[in-house]
Design a protein around this nucleic acid. Structure first.
Lengths: 194, 194, 194, 194
DNA sequence: GATGAATGAGTGTTCATTCAT
DNA sequence: CATGAATGAACACTCATTCAT
């Protein structure tokens, strides 16, 4: 049993237990006790590695955000052609990556949004993420469209992606990511096609 | 002092206090005590008119849904011309009505979505609402487009409306409903314009 | 079982349970659970009548202070002769009244002093009490002595009273209040006798 | 790095950290974690050098007591004249030595008294100290007064010293040790002057 | 119809202590 | 000698709910 250097291991372990707990019982009932039991550790350990429950929630959200960023960045790095359409497609695909459309992630996102309305730290995280999606999109539209038009198109595409994700998450049925991506890509083509 | 017929008055009073409480302290901290204090009544009264706290939450959500339905229906009844575009515009406008984009409503909606992932009763409410938006939209697209295309367009517009609303709610800034409606309407025109 | 107007009854009941708990297990171990059990009520009731544990501690200390004030005031009101010596004797007797030299009160006083070093609200209470003893004494010395001498004598008598009380409390043996009062009164006579 | 002979150094280090912690956050909040952090060592080290937290508290109190004893003894050894008055003055001065009237010491003493009411080990320490002050004083009075009178005077002076110290500690203002010593010495003169 | 007294389970958090390294 | 990972009990406090009045 290793007794030193446990910090990164335990942190990851607890973040995953949090996602699992939110998936199974919902954020409202994901008490420290439940999370600790799922991680197979004692309650007190959470205060040891995260200051308090908020610290754990914050770290969990940061984890999801980072995952989203990584997925999108990787897809864009792997592109063969450097066209706006290709980049936008990669962005769309990143947002519907498996790491974002599984039950645990979807429930956590929704709970995160609700909580961000009243917790400044989460709100800041949320704004950074929202802005990243918008500006990444805008950047690409800007290569093909005049500034004002690019902005409007970016706002539309960002909203469409979030809306498709949201309705998919709320539906309760299996997430048809294929169709969602097709609708989003069609929007891209319409905007670029002028 | 009227001892009869208080039910509808009290129920409305408590629903409004709930929205107010959610607006001010967030759903997580909107305890029965807080809501009762805001309504100027005793704690116990809530069990009297709603079975329990869940009953009050459910009623509050139903209230928001009804309001949304009424706003949309009224706008459509007042239409001069019976074109798909006009109906879709009315639907869009209804979704960005003041009753849906104020702080209390936005916070309650977000909390509702998060909760609906784990509470069957709320999930059912949520699905009904989602489906109503989709089928209302689809119905109008159907008048101008072949079935399959109408379905896809409807899915897109519904997602775009929800996404625009979501990003507006989460931004924390004033909600630019004008721009949102313009983007949604432009999407309608693109879909119909083929 | 009365269901209204319980507040003063419960408050008194809880204050007495606090004194009893401090007597039996010490302030450090006088948890809310212990106090509630001694009062024969549930834990939650304490938050209902006092905001929190600090509120209960504060109320308990206020109770002891009020008791001390009442005992002293009554003795002075019952005086036959209006001499400084008589008043000072009454003040001395009040400070060694049974309400102040029982185990529960002594332990609570000591815990109160220790806590007052770090809790502003308790410190304020403490200063008011200290000052009252001093100024009551000073007032009487002033009738027989020049101002500066009265002040010094008052400081000395107040300290002597507190010191006698303190050593009596800490001794662990039965409190010889007779001897304590004799020593204090002798000090009075020495000061007045010049 | 010395691996042997650390014990006295570490013990002293931890006792001083305890006094510092009590000064800054109060005995109630002076947890092992806080004390260890102030000493710049790990939590576990405390169990290593003191059996447990009580051991550390006990050692800290013993340290204060020893300091008091040393200060008094040194002053008496340095006396030019071997009169009762000179010895009593030295005892008084020892009790108002800087090592006893600094914030950390005063807070620790008060916490110690409160705790001694319920912890036999601390109570024993406390009684030894109380008795030493009394018997040292009594011894000197005995050289000038009949036994019974010496005892009463000793009780009075011991109480006066403790009372002056107590009121000084609780006042929250700067400790006027000069005045306190003058009052105590005056009491000595009155007792001897008969 | 309406109150508010009362409950008690549940929460997040703190903390002294243990122990493998 | 020294660390810090880990525990688990204890704590103050919150809260939805019940019910006598």
């Amino acid at each position: 049993m290793p007794k030193v250097g446990m910090q990164p291991i335990r942190r990851q372990q607890l973040i995953e237990a949090t996602l699992q707990a939110v998936d199974q019982v919902g954020m409202a009932d994901a008490s420290i006790g439940v999370i600790a039991r799922m991680a197979g550790v004692s309650n007190g350990i959470i205060s040891h590695y995260f200051q308090d429950k908020n610290g754990l929630i914050f770290a969990t959200m940061s984890h999801l955000l980072t995952e989203l960023m990584i997925q999108t960045a990787e897809r864009r790095r792997a592109l063969r052609e450097n066209t706006p359409r290709a980049h936008l497609q990669a962005i769309i695909e990143g947002n519907f990556d498996a790491s974002q459309v599984n039950n645990a992630a979807m429930k956590t996102w929704l709970a995160f949004w609700a909580a961000s309305m009243h917790q400044p730290a989460l709100h800041r995280l949320q704004r950074i993420n929202d802005h990243r999606l918008y500006s990444n999109i805008c950047c690409q539209f800007r290569r093909a469209l005049p500034l004002e038009q690019a902005r409007v198109s970016a706002r539309g595409l960002a909203a469409l992606i979030d809306g498709l994700w949201l309705r998919g998450a709320l539906s309760g049925d299996a997430f048809d990511t294929e169709q969602a991506q097709r609708i989003a890509l069609e929007y891209v083509d319409q905007q670029l096609g002028r």
